[in-house]
Design a binder for these strands. Structure first.
Lengths: 208, 208
DNA sequence: GTTGTGACTATATTACAATATGGTCACTTA
DNA sequence: TAAGTGACCATATTGTAATATAGTCACAAC
């Protein structure tokens, strides 16, 4: 569901017909090549050859190579969002949702790091260069936090004195070093314990 | 005070007499050169020429170039610790000490970034490569947090149910992205608001 | 023992020419 | 009009030979 939102919003730097067989072929080839050889090492010509067209034709669909990277990155991050969503399903309380969310963010991102490093690197550099795909991802994370806090306040589980925006912002800032691929790299050694310890801290701060 | 502690512990990779005029000259020259031209761009020969000795003589006092870098880095971080100490002086409450500490960490580090970028870069790469000077710095920060939490618990300002180690660890993890030069780089845009918002969150989590 | 160095090596860095790549455009074909 | 491309340009990247640097060591002077 988040995936669909993200891709629809990601229409910048796209060209030509939005629904087109060739566009899909390009994305498919890019997923393959970027994942296997990395973003830098695959050339636009590689993608063109792979689908049997000329390089020039690629540029009928994407304004830049980065625009292709954005789509791949967006798909990657959408998969993480999906994993987060699934991890939260069936949580009995808002507290539990928050714990699961935090844990899922870290686990999904770490897994990407270890199992699809090339795609992870794209996400990391995308975060560093503030690609649209990344800022949309962060927005979604914030939205999830807002929903959790809102629900927790409604149910009386969380305190209501602090302005909700500040609460959400603060929680987001705490999660950020583990949710942002660019930062997670430097915090991987903490990936095992930090979510638990920080979830505890956040939840203590939320107690009425 | 922290400075003294740190330097004393930093005797790894040092050679020859520990108290020696020439050692001081080397450090002095290194402070000058590293700050002006950066760690990578200054050569050991530069330092040697600058103090009128041969390069080989430098290696009578330091086992590696990095060992010289460690001293400079250590001094830099000690200055930050000093600034933190001074910022906390006269705080009426533990809460206030924590606020001031967090603020001072970010301000001192940001200031280093903007006003002595070359030295900042040394600290950042030192953090990335886990130099001793950096791990000692982080220990000191943790120690300061422990003292604040301890005092706050004694005075009844903070809750006492959570194991104090977990509390300290959690607070440390929250501050880390702003206190660690390697991470601060990516969070500079948050340097203005994050300390306040996160201090608030931490203090809510500490309320009895 | 302490102070001090020139000469040396293996590795790292630079400079730069050769090559490759991102991106455009006029043009063809159906 | 939509599908598709070869030729082209400016910049980025690479390969590599020349240079520079970190670090050692045997040795000299006092």
């Amino acid at each position: 569901m988040y995936a669909i939102n993200m891709i629809k919003k990601l229409d910048n730097n796209l060209r030509g017909p939005s629904e087109h067989n060739v566009r899909d072929q390009i994305v498919e080839a890019a997923a393959e090549y970027f994942s296997r050889y990395g973003y830098e090492k695959t050339t636009v010509s590689d993608l063109a050859k792979s689908i049997g067209f000329s390089k020039a034709y690629i540029y009928k669909f994407f304004a830049t190579k980065q625009a292709i990277g954005e789509v791949i990155c967006s798909n990657t991050l959408s998969a993480i969002l999906k994993a987060i969503d699934e991890a939260m399903v069936g949580s009995p309380t808002a507290s539990e949702r928050l714990r699961r969310m935090f844990k899922a963010v870290v686990e999904a991102s770490s897994q990407l790091f270890f199992e699809d490093r090339k795609l992870y690197d794209i996400a990391a550099s995308a975060a560093g260069e503030q690609w649209q795909s990344c800022t949309l991802y962060q927005e979604q994370i914030k939205k999830i936090i807002l929903e959790i806090v809102h629900a927790g306040r409604e149910s009386g589980e969380f305190e209501r004195k602090t302005p909700i925006d500040e609460t959400v912002n603060a929680i987001y800032l705490v999660i950020q070093p583990y949710g942002n691929p660019l930062l997670l790299q430097h915090n991987l050694h903490l990936a095992e314990h930090a979510p638990m310890i920080l979830s505890n801290l956040i939840l203590r701060s939320l107690s009425p």
